[in-house]
Design a protein around this nucleic acid. Structure first.
Length: 253
DNA sequence: CATCCGTGGGC
DNA sequence: TGCCCAAGGAT
């Protein structure tokens, strides 16, 4: 849930989710469509599908127990380098570098004196952070959580609060006078994109506990070609299934 | 490896 | 108002 979504928005959904599905096998026992609906408006609903698939894999392949090694966690749907290491460190106390967007920004600023441009962490980043990790695994996990919090609350992207930062007097970026990033990764456009259209369609289906007519879904945009393409892609992604001979669409069973 | 994939709050 | 960005991952 936290992949690309702020903590404050995740929290209420997470609490309801864990009350309904306290264990992987509980989630796996319900339909992927139930997961997508409970996901509500967290965005990127494919994550709900993957979380359900991960719960199924844990139930079927791992006896219902969440794997504790980074290597095995990486085999789960929707679990990449960040999530695998976050689980290993925070749930199981492993000593492994955890690099999210916050840690990457702090590392880049403090150690290299350069503002990061919101790129994914590399193996080189993990090696660098590894040299800074405390030796004791439990301390290393706390260190990672602390750096993430520092990045989220103090060393933020737009308006860093350097006056409140415990690392300000040893931060290369701060000491260099906050040099601007060399190149900023282009922000993806939003208006008129398939993502926007898909989002409108999914909102309609989430709000309706039955099936939604194809014509109603296609009406979310004037662009008929885009509407068809977007609806087809939702089916291809497994987020929707056709009902009533293709005249309507519903969440997957 | 570049691109795609939602949603909403802050400024 | 419009732009930026947020505990990334899959293809």
């Amino acid at each position: 849930m936290l992949q690309q979504t702020p903590v404050v928005r995740v929290l209420p959904v997470y609490l309801r989710w864990m009350e309904r599905w306290p264990t992987p096998d509980a989630l796996a026992a319900d339909s992927p469509g139930d997961a997508v609906r409970a996901w509500d408006r967290l965005g990127y609903p494919r994550r709900a599908l993957r979380l359900h698939a991960a719960a199924t894999a844990i139930t079927v392949d791992h006896g219902g127990t969440v794997p504790d090694s980074v290597e095995t966690l990486l085999t789960l749907p929707g679990v990449g380098e960040y999530t695998a290491r976050a689980i290993a460190a925070f749930a199981f106390g492993a000593r492994t570098p955890v690099i999210d967007t916050n840690v990457r920004r702090v590392l880049s600023r403090v150690e290299r004196g350069v503002d990061s441009i919101r790129e994914p962490a590399t193996a080189a980043d993990r090696r660098e952070l590894e040299t800074l990790l405390p030796a004791e695994p439990a301390v290393a996990a706390r260190f990672s959580a602390a750096v993430m919090e520092l990045g989220a609350l103090v060393c933020s992207a737009a308006n860093p609060r350097c006056a409140d930062c415990p690392l300000a007097d040893r931060c290369a970026w701060h000491l260099a006078g906050h040099p601007a990033a060399v190149a900023r990764r282009a922000v993806q456009t939003w208006h008129g994109t398939d993502r926007q259209v898909r989002g409108r369609m999914m909102a309609l289906v989430r709000a309706d506990h039955g099936a939604v007519a194809r014509a109603l879904l296609l009406a979310v945009t004037d662009d008929a070609v885009q509407a068809t393409r977007s609806l087809d892609s939702l089916v291809a992604d497994g987020l929707l299934v056709t009902v009533d001979g293709g005249r309507a669409y519903a969440l997957p069973d």
